[in-house]
Design a protein around this nucleic acid. Structure first.
Lengths: 336, 336
DNA sequence: GGCAGGAATGACAGCGCTGTCAATTTGCAT
DNA sequence: ATGCAAATTGACAGCGCTGTCATTCCTGCC
């Protein structure tokens, strides 16, 4: 049958409570005892019963990852974060559950409450754009549920992980400037996502620093999707004075821009330089491959989860800044 | 504090065991009692403690969804299945966990064993290509873990959900034939995926039925990714006698084909008809929009989970066939 | 009206672990 | 050696439910 903690205790010649202490890395166990118990656990391939642990110890060893399945066209991004969160949870022997919550729905908070009451997660990982939903954050604090955020809009004392997206956006626009481009367009993402704001801010910063005043016609709204990139590009290519380069706020839109360039007979990068943001797998498969900013989504999910787990263990958590890296590839070249 | 089953029992004037019976939809409770208990539960907003239930009842109310994160570039597909599985689990008050397992790894089975020992899921949902991993299926039976499959290769007495992909592939190729195409190419998916085989078989069936003998040069290997579609298309477009239509085994590759067509100055659909398979969101955003086969992934995930849950409740489960539908859009037209 | 037999309900132990607190051992200064 | 505080270990109850089996309550039928 199943090996229980009691069996391990008998094998190691100690009380069940001592085995429990070893299992939970508690203090006040001599190294010798700890080692003996560890050996017994190993030998018997002991697996603690999560339900028993959770029932007796009043914690669930469960982390819930919340995401919005309404406003998230870039599902690759979420899948990667999910992978990272899962990796961290596994490493710490926590289990993870995913919860899609439609932020725009009226019963958003109610559904969140139900999640907590039904599953008792020890903590929660928030993904954009849920990271910035004020009523939810309030409720999390009220119910005293620890949480960590991936790319939260407001940094403050939030725990989690972030990248300096504004700096990254500025850097990629500077790359275009160095290539001699002056008429550089920007395709914005979904308006209220933090990512859209920062990337736009970075674009503006770089342009201003180069002494170029903003041309409103060169800044067009998109929605993070391939289709919205195509639309935005058509708008740009219909201008009397076309841009020579386009910085799209993510790779999907950049791909759309490249697509539309084909429609207009513009060769990339000869007639038009295009760059994106995210370094999705797609960006490397395109021809020419897309110049973009690498955002380590998987790593970011992992880090957010690790910060959360650190808090759950009673240690402090912090907002970790991850570095970005420019991926200069074939889609950008010297201005025509 | 927390409302317990005992509290509900007191409020309803019955024993805890009776409340438990109502909670679990067991027999031998009068309608009047059942109603009284239900009302009390409702009034007190009672939420059973999952760990207590699982510890005492020896079941976990947990379903694990297994997927391969090695060989699955089409993450949108998985994300949709995941959503569907989650929906079904929620409806039946089960929780769900996702488990990436690299099928090609040596310790695949060991990791699966660890999953079972650590989390005790009541059942498992298998997604392609894990559905056809013989050693895993064997182990599932040995350990007596019920499972349901999404699009399993071998139908037999498997429980789950499937679509007649071969028929769908045949139908879409017939659509091309009706448009007057004769030189129709096919881009195959990853070799050992069931999906690749069926779609190829459907292609062959349609061509043979039209009295066309297979031209080996027109059938090229891909890998379900955009990039592999581009590669395959370049191969096809370099032929002395180019195809006038390409049926790619999924939308990502079809998009790659359309991309490559641009490189070769071929206008879609005027010079070349292209069609895919899956009806990913991308297919609608392209210009021209992609003719494809709609595969209701989300629905399929939901159905697979429902069949599994049915088995867990002691009812029979079966392999549900879902209908496909052709999405005829702008990327296919009369042969040049 | 009395009784068998099944339906409805309840009493109670226990699932496998951890919290609390008591008992024991250890280390160290005297 | 001796005493004392701190470190280590253990005894025991109980987390919130469900399985088992005993008990009570109904039926229909002679």
């Amino acid at each position: 049958m199943r090996v229980r903690l009691e069996d391990v205790a008998r094998a190691a010649g100690v009380s069940p409570k001592t085995v429990s202490r070893v299992l939970n890395d508690e203090a006040n166990v001599t190294d010798a005892t700890r080692e003996r118990v560890r050996a017994a656990m190993e030998a018997m391939d002991y697996r603690p019963h999560p339900s028993a642990r959770s029932l007796a110890g009043n914690r669930s060893f469960l982390v819930a990852m919340l995401y919005d399945n309404n406003d998230n066209p870039a599902s690759t991004y979420l899948a990667e974060i999910q992978d990272g969160v899962l990796e961290a949870c596994d490493a710490h022997r926590y289990s993870m559950m995913v919860r899609p919550l439609r932020m725009r729905d009226g019963d958003f908070i109610r559904r969140f409450d139900a999640l907590i009451s039904d599953h008792h997660p020890d903590g929660v990982v928030l993904t954009p754009p849920i990271t910035d939903h004020a009523p939810l954050l309030k409720r999390l604090r009220e119910r005293n549920v620890p949480y960590a955020s991936v790319s939260p809009l407001r940094h403050g004392k939030t725990i989690g992980v972030a990248m300096d997206e504004q700096l990254a956006a500025r850097a990629i626009v500077e790359h275009l400037l160095e290539l001699g481009h002056r008429r550089i367009a920007h395709v914005i993402g979904i308006a209220d996502h933090g990512a859209s704001r920062w990337r736009l801010a970075g674009y503006r910063e770089a342009m201003a620093a180069a002494g170029l005043s903003e041309e409103p016609a060169l800044v067009v709204q998109g929605a993070f999707t391939f289709g919205s990139g195509v639309e935005a590009a058509r708008q740009l290519f219909s201008l009397a004075k076309r841009p020579t380069a386009v910085f799209a706020a993510n790779d999907d839109m950049a791909t759309g821009v490249m697509w539309a360039a084909g429609e207009y007979g513009l060769k990339v990068p000869h007639d038009l330089s295009v760059c994106g943001f995210d370094d999705t797998p797609l960006s490397r498969q395109l021809w020419p491959a897309l110049t973009t900013v690498q955002q380590p989504s998987r790593e970011m999910g992992k880090i957010a989860a690790e910060q959360l787990l650190s808090v759950l263990r009673g240690n402090p958590g912090r907002l970790v800044q991850v570095p970005f890296s420019l991926q200069i590839r074939g889609s950008t070249a010297i201005a025509p």
